[in-house]
Amino acid sequence: MPSLSVWPTGQRDTLAQLRDTGCVPGTETDTERIPPAVAAHAIATYTRPGDLVLDPDCGAGTVLTEALRADRRALGLTARTQWWTLARANVTAAKTTGAWRDGSVLDARPKVLATIRAAGLIGRVGLILTSLRTAPDRATGPGRDPVESALADLATTLLYCEPLLRSGGHVAVVARPLRCPDGSLVDLATPVLAAGTSAGLAPVERCIALTAGLRGSRLVTRASLAERRAAARALAAGAPTALSAHHEVLVFQLAHDAELAAAAAVGIPWPTEDEVIRPAVNRVTYPGWGRAA
């Protein structure tokens, strides 16, 4: 069955999802976390049991928890002590309930993925799943826009991550809707797609992960109190604003893999494994890399 571009991931509110998955208290303070239901759907769609799932900016660790619960291996990175403590606690909680045992969190920035410390991960990651984090503390100077800073960080992170992706693997970036001061939506998809392309990845899917519940043909929003108050203020000012009902998910593959898939879709025979060697990534050639069966 083809994968759906609209994911029904909002049937439970986010706090209920955290309780259902056994996340430790405090996880809810990570307001830019990937909701557990969204992480679980992405992991089930793009990986198999035993695959390695990487979140290079894992926050409180919801992606890691869902990967372990789905019998996948999990690795997360974060440079913030607060998130590292919560992510480790969530990984430990998942393991104590019988989840997959191979999960860890590194107190490090994504740049470590481009060093010799990550050499053993080259070509072995099945899914890189992360969110676009736009907290104000990401801005590095006065007047620096946190969204622009987050997009620049994402572009660099994807560049570090690209060599780690195995043939046939996926990269999924989750972006929650943001609004400009005038109430209009910020176009996040265009710069995220550009960031992936500049890292040597090819966009293959653009999905909507619902954060609203489905009730027949209606959407039941689960907006926060702050979002509802902002919508009320906008309405009073004569500029009605819709409440958030989804996150956007941009999915990529290695450019070479995407080309092979496109060729297969139109009936062009794929070369044999001996004929296909993965091209250089980040200007480095890794001999012996062939297309996975």
Score class of each variant (00 low, 15 high):
23 C>N: 13
217 S>I: 15
46 Y>M: 05
174 V>H: 04
200 G>Q: 03
146 P>F: 05
196 G>Q: 06
87 A>V: 06
211 T>G: 00
127 L>M: 09
225 L>E: 14
143 G>P: 12
35 P>G: 11
67 A>G: 07
259 E>H: 15
273 E>Q: 15
17 Q>L: 09
184 S>I: 13
26 G>F: 10
153 D>H: 05
187 D>E: 15
105 V>H: 09
34 I>Y: 02
53 V>Y: 02
128 I>N: 00
91 V>D: 01
272 T>N: 09
258 A>G: 04
116 I>S: 11
104 S>P: 00
130 T>F: 02
168 G>S: 01
122 I>S: 04
292 A>S: 13
157 T>L: 05
244 S>D: 13
101 R>Y: 04
30 D>K: 11
239 A>E: 15
25 P>V: 14
220 V>H: 13
200 G>W: 01
207 C>S: 08
37 A>I: 06
289 W>E: 15
32 E>G: 05
208 I>F: 08
155 A>G: 09
162 E>S: 05
255 A>W: 10
292 A>K: 04
242 A>E: 14
90 N>Y: 01
287 P>H: 08
145 D>W: 02
23 C>Q: 06
28 E>P: 01
47 T>D: 00
264 A>E: 14
72 R>F: 05
157 T>Y: 03
49 P>R: 04
234 A>Q: 13
163 P>A: 01
122 I>N: 03
57 D>A: 15
158 L>W: 00
55 D>C: 03
38 V>L: 13
224 S>H: 09
255 A>P: 07
79 A>V: 14
69 R>E: 03
254 L>H: 06
240 P>S: 13
166 R>V: 06
130 T>M: 06
99 A>H: 00
18 L>V: 11
133 R>K: 12
216 G>D: 07
156 T>L: 02
109 R>W: 13
53 V>D: 02
221 T>Y: 13
79 A>P: 07
106 L>P: 01
225 L>M: 14
149 S>Q: 11
59 G>L: 11
277 I>W: 10
205 E>N: 07
239 A>C: 15
63 V>G: 04
118 A>E: 03
180 C>T: 11
165 L>D: 02
241 T>F: 01
119 A>H: 12
238 G>S: 13
125 V>T: 12
74 A>R: 01
132 L>W: 03
263 A>T: 14
183 G>S: 12
167 S>L: 02
24 V>H: 05
267 G>M: 14
166 R>A: 00
16 A>F: 09
143 G>E: 14
239 A>W: 12
188 L>R: 04
267 G>T: 08
117 R>A: 13
195 A>D: 10
230 A>L: 08
128 I>R: 01
235 L>H: 14
46 Y>G: 04
129 L>F: 00
79 A>E: 15
